[in-house]
Amino acid sequence: MKQRIESIVEQLKNRSPLPALTPKSVWDAKLDEEIAALDTSALGGSKAAIALKAALHLWNDSLDVSHSYAQQIEVDPTGGYWHGLMHRMERDYGNGNYWFMRAGNHPVKALVQQAAADYLTGIVGLDALPANKVTKELIRFRDESGWTSEAFTDIVKLQESGGGLPETREMLEQLQHLELKTLFRHTYAMC
């Protein structure tokens, strides 16, 4: 099973284009079937195994299926985190932030905060973009290590409502992908 999971993960890591901030449909229907067919019973039906299925489906933009798994483990911090990501991606921002709060001080949040600052530090021209709320928040994420899952949700909402630029959309998609990969690594290590 490990080999099948790693094959799926490789496809998801290298997908092009990156997952949209708020996807409209499943990215790869065949891959979604492969994810659904994974027999995680070897993992004992643990919360980690359920979180793994929620993660892979979400990474493949299969929001409804991911949601069904996340709901089974929503009292677990990692399950709550996946639940929050799913709601953010479906544009249910308030519900997403509720689940991020329920995930508490999840260790992945600090990892993503640092990785977001590092990524944004490498963006040439960020300071030269027209000043708007999205750009200002990205600069804050960079300069103050100000990224939080809740603040990121708010900036995604602003971008999706027309308050950002094409350049900031690309940066936000990179940050969301970074968050998905980081939380996935944590989830997979728990299995």
Rank of each mutant, 00 (worst) to 15 (best):
H87Q: 07
W99F: 13
K133H: 04
G125I: 06
I155W: 11
D127Q: 03
W82A: 04
Y119Q: 10
G164A: 05
L158W: 13
R88H: 04
D64P: 00
Y98F: 15
G122F: 09
V75M: 07
R88F: 01
R142W: 08
V124I: 14
F152Q: 03
R140M: 02
G146V: 10
F152L: 03
V65S: 12
N60C: 06
A115F: 10
A51M: 09
A51V: 05
R91E: 14
V156T: 05
E150W: 07
L63P: 00
L172E: 02
E74W: 10
L172R: 00
K133Y: 09
L129E: 10
L183F: 01
Y81S: 07
I155E: 05
G45N: 11
V156Q: 00
E167V: 05
F141D: 08
E137F: 06
L180D: 15
N60S: 14
F141A: 09
T135E: 03
G94C: 01
A110V: 15
G162N: 07
F100R: 00
N95W: 04
Y93E: 13
S149P: 10
G146W: 14
H106R: 09
Y69C: 01
I139L: 11
I139M: 03
H87K: 02
G96T: 14
A131V: 02
N97T: 14
Q114I: 12
E74K: 08
N105M: 11
Q72V: 11
N132S: 04
G84P: 04
V108R: 11
K181C: 03
G96C: 09
I123L: 12
M171I: 13
E90H: 11
P130Y: 07
N132E: 12
G79E: 00
G122N: 13
A54G: 00
T148H: 06
S145F: 11
N132A: 07
L129Y: 06
K181R: 06
G45D: 11
L172V: 05
N95P: 01
G146E: 05
L172P: 04
P77T: 10
S161R: 06
G104A: 12
Q174K: 14
W99T: 15
R142Y: 06
K47E: 13
K109R: 10
M89T: 03
I155Q: 12
E173G: 06
Q113M: 15
P130V: 05
E137W: 13
A110C: 03
S68L: 06
T153M: 05
E173I: 04
E160H: 04
G125W: 10
T148K: 01
K109F: 13
R169S: 07
A117C: 11
G96M: 08
A103E: 03
I139D: 03
L52I: 10
T182W: 05
H106F: 08
D61F: 12
G84N: 09
G94H: 10
E170G: 05
L111Y: 00
L111W: 11
G162Q: 14
H83M: 04
D143G: 10
P166Y: 12
P107F: 12
K157I: 07
H177C: 01
A128K: 12
S145N: 11
A103I: 12
M101V: 15
H57I: 01
T135P: 01
G44H: 08
G125Y: 09
V124N: 13
S161C: 02
L165P: 02
G94A: 14
T182R: 08
W82P: 05
V75N: 09
N97D: 13
P130M: 05
T168M: 06
L52Q: 14
K47V: 15
A110E: 15
P77G: 08
H87Y: 10
I50Q: 13
D92H: 13
N97P: 00
